[in-house]
Design a binder for these strands. Structure first.
Lengths: 126, 126
DNA sequence: TGTCAACCTAGACGAATGCCGAAGCAAGCG
DNA sequence: CGCTTGCTTCGGCATTCGTCTAGGTTGACA
């Protein structure tokens, strides 16, 4: 079986995506919803949410898989699968340096999602 | 790990939940991740994301189901099911007034989620 | 009171998800 | 060269999800 050198161009969410007039100020079009929903879905799992946090809050903005895996009571392949999900959602970026693989958070994308949710306005009280 | 499934006591997310030191500044504990993940999961569907937007951006901050349903090519029960999911995730609130049912967005919760994602810092590494 | 409209609940079914163990690549070291 | 370690991919199950049709339940109105 031939080796594919290009593992994942995915990037549904680019850093230049226009996106994000706040969800509460303007109705989200179907296209935009379809583009953004996978990112929220990827965050919709406790393990992935913790992974995302561990990666984003890491020292250099990147975390080694070897540090992430032992933080859970899950098998290595399962963690790898969750990381792949985050990667395909465009939330993180992976890079292999020597023996280890490092994941880095795409903070621009996180900020886009945050901007979408932030209702410029106030709390529940009208 | 002795993971205890949350039985969905409604309102996992209260308006007074302290929550939300940004995800990128402090590692999210397992409990918090378990509490917040359902909200992101609820937003992880294009239909629900549009519903959320339609409700949050409605005139009085509330939208009638009779206005929401015809906006999609889905059956009534399916829309109802999605609204229920949003409700159980604590993202919206439902109220019946006479014949119609109105849904209102919990903007405080949306703001909490936004604050969690907003990485006080900058964009992706330049 | 009977009837109609709006909305939710119940049950079912195909598709996707989460998990694991086993196997496959990649990099370093004896 | 071959062995060990790190991470991913590959098949497999059990569970959950999204959707539908059919059948309530609530309220308005003649």
């Amino acid at each position: 079986m031939p080796k594919q050198a290009t593992p994942l161009p995915h990037t549904v969410l680019g850093d230049d995506t226009p996106c994000c007039p706040p969800l509460a100020q303007q109705r989200v079009p179907a296209e935009v919803a379809t583009a953004l929903a996978p990112a929220f879905k990827a965050l919709g799992d406790p393990v992935r949410l913790q992974l995302m946090s561990m990666i984003a809050s890491a020292e250099n903005g990147e975390a080694c898989v070897c540090d992430l895996t032992p933080a859970f009571d899950l098998s290595g392949p399962t963690i790898s699968h969750h990381l792949r999900t985050l990667r395909e959602a465009g939330l993180v970026d992976a890079e292999r340096r020597g023996t280890w693989v490092y994941y880095r958070a795409r903070k621009a994308v996180l900020n886009q999602l945050a901007a979408l949710l932030a209702s410029g306005g106030g709390t529940t009280a009208p």
